[in-house]
Design a protein around this nucleic acid. Structure first.
Lengths: 244, 244
DNA sequence: TCATAGTTTTTGGCATGCCAAATACCAGAA
DNA sequence: TTCTGGTATTTGGCATGCCAAAAACTATGA
């Protein structure tokens, strides 16, 4: 379960000279530093490139990061909760590889969460915030097609989806989808062949925005859901060769 | 992110005398035992009963469980990933209390996932499995009203929802909702005043089942969503006095 | 009595070292 | 050369002990 993303400042009213002293920087521990470092490293590496499973070594990592094994082990335990690694007792720590079915499954869950976000947005978000979603695609149009700038469009795409979810004002939806995205994105071959999907993507995005602006709850929900379910179907249909 | 629930037996074909030797019991480590024990303890305690935050002590726990602090700390790190506890550097480990807004938010996410499950079920589940969902409520009817046996109905209720999600054959949906349920259930005052909601619950459940049987994807999704969103609205409206 | 400086205690963070299981490696026999 | 038994090595699991920050406590003085 995700943490609430916020770090609420305690509203305790002290004396009159209350200068919003929140509490000095928690100086992130080695454990957390190791967690972040390992997580980033895992997301950066291309897990699906090699047929052999990717292994991690506690001692090597501790040496690499300049800390003892203890904080490393705690970080590994956290990553295992996230589902990024799996430690096998006297064998080693292996970076988890997702099957196509699992990726598709995750995208479906993502679709569920995003459609709920769309639903909430129609009832609470401000008009200007909704309209601002168009800016993510302002560099694309009939004269500058997304399919001709796949990499760039891909970034705008992800930014759009994250901004969309954020508009729901729901920390749980935000955190859950971010977690899912991390897993799905790790499967970067998703980029391959995305070209033929990119063409339909932009109009669908705009359709979602329009429904949101119209405060059409049911339509916005449906469009958001179908759009992401479309991706799931695409991966399911065109992804087999990408998994060993 | 949740682990896939399965523990797939490796299908490596050895010699001819392959007697399905799967791999001796992994003998769960102290770390995992501690994790399970602490998790259960946290879920069992009534966090919202006292106004003071509930604290945990590493040393006390290690003594209590008869292990050293190391596996305890690793278990704590895992629980922190789950969002059950929060360790504050030189202060202690505090069991996280959810605000009403957070609980409502979680229920909404749950609604999203469950409606997607309903959607999937209409296209893949077997008729007999869907019909079997009625069994959870076979002990209730016009002559034996749910609101007269709230405790019993509550258990049937949860069992029904979990069985429903399972029918989706989606490990991700199952794991995510289970995680959410653990947090929501911890807020056990949810039981209070549930009596007036129980009356409408049963018909709604049956309505969901009917839509599933009719393979009406849209209707099943809508009914599942609205049912759980109804709970969210209920908590939002009637739950303020339950949070300090 | 109350404020304050100084001391002790508590508490999580972390380094170290040993253990046993699993594996890799190697020499000797067939 | 190949199989086999045994030994060295690797690897995660865990116990221990010390450290510094923060809190609790105490003695001192106005």
């Amino acid at each position: 379960m995700p943490e609430p993303t916020q770090t609420k400042a305690s509203p305790n009213n002290m004396a009159d000279t209350d200068i919003a002293i929140v509490r000095i920087a928690p100086e992130t521990s080695f454990k957390n530093k190791a967690y972040e470092a390992l997580k980033e490293a895992i997301l950066k590496m291309d897990i699906y490139a090699t047929p052999e499973p990717v292994m991690l070594d506690e001692r090597a990592l501790s040496e690499r990061l300049g800390v003892s094994r203890t904080p490393i082990r705690e970080a590994i335990a956290m990553l295992e909760q996230d589902g990024f690694v799996k430690t096998v007792p006297r064998r080693g720590i292996v970076v988890v590889r997702r099957t196509k079915a699992e990726i598709v499954d995750m995208i479906r869950a993502w679709a569920a969460l995003e459609s709920m976000a769309a639903r909430l947005i129609t009832t609470t978000a401000r008009k200007k915030d909704i309209t601002a979603l168009r800016d993510f695609f302002k560099d694309f149009g009939p004269d500058r097609l997304p399919q001709d700038h796949v990499e760039e469009y891909s970034k705008a795409n992800i930014a759009f989806h994250q901004a969309l979810i954020s508009l729901s004002e729901s920390p749980v939806l935000v955190d859950l989808t971010n977690d899912l995205l991390l897993h799905v994105r790790g499967y970067r071959q998703l980029t391959i062949g995305r070209k033929d999907r990119t063409a339909t993507s932009l109009p669908e995005h705009l359709g979602i925005i329009e429904a949101l602006e119209a405060r059409d709850t049911e339509l916005a929900e449906k469009r958001a859901r179908d759009h992401t379910l479309g991706l799931a179907a695409y991966v399911e249909a065109h992804g087999q060769e990408l998994f060993t």
